[in-house]
Simulated assay, not measured.
Amino acid sequence: MTDPDSRWLVPVADVPRHELVPRWWERDGSGAWELRDGPSDPEAWAEAAYADRSLVTRVGPLHADQAEPDDRPEGRPTSSATLPSLVVRMLRHGRLGDGLSLLDLGTGAGGLAAYACYRLGDACVTSLDVDPYLVRAAGERLADMHCYPTLITADATREVPGTYDRIVSTVALTPGPGLRPVVGALAYGGRIATTLARTSLIITGWKDRHGDVIGQVERDMAGFMPTRSGADHPPALTDLLTLARQAHGEHTSTGRYPVVDVGNAWELRSMLEVTLPGVELDYETNGHQRTAYLAHPDGSWARASAERTDPPEVHQSGPQRLWDALERIRNRLNAEGALPLLGARVRLTPDGVVHLSRGRWRASMGAR
Results as ranks from 00 to 15, higher is better:
A292L: 14
T285V: 13
H288I: 08
A304Y: 01
Q289V: 15
W301K: 05
V274T: 06
A306W: 00
G287M: 11
L281A: 01
A304C: 09
P277N: 07
L272P: 00
A295M: 09
R290P: 01
E307H: 13
V279W: 01
Q289F: 13
A304L: 04
P277H: 04
S305Y: 00
G299M: 10
W301S: 04
Y283N: 05
D282V: 08
G299N: 12
G287D: 10
D310A: 15
V274P: 04
E273P: 05
D298V: 11
T309G: 09
G287V: 12
R303K: 12
H296S: 12
R308D: 13
R303T: 10
A295T: 05
E284C: 13
Y283V: 02
P297Y: 05
G278R: 09
V274I: 15
T285R: 14
E307M: 10
P297E: 04
G299I: 13
H296L: 06
E307A: 10
A304Q: 00
S305A: 13
D298L: 06
E273N: 11
T275L: 10
L272Y: 02
L276Q: 12
E280D: 09
S305G: 12
L281Q: 11
V279M: 04
W301D: 04
Y283A: 02
P297F: 03
L272E: 08
H296P: 02
R290L: 06
H296G: 08
G278Q: 12
A292Y: 07
W301H: 02
H296M: 05
Q289I: 15
R290F: 04
A306V: 09
V274D: 02
G287N: 11
E284Q: 15
N286S: 15
W301L: 02
P277R: 07
V274G: 02
Y283Q: 01
D282K: 03
Q289Y: 14
T275M: 07
R308I: 11
E273L: 08
G287F: 02
Y293G: 00
A304K: 00
T309E: 14
T285Y: 04
L281W: 08
T275G: 06
G278L: 08
L281H: 10
P277A: 04
P297N: 10
A292C: 14
V279R: 00
P297H: 04
V279G: 01
E307S: 11
S300W: 03
P297R: 07
E284K: 14
H288A: 09
W301F: 08
A306P: 05
H296T: 05
S300I: 09
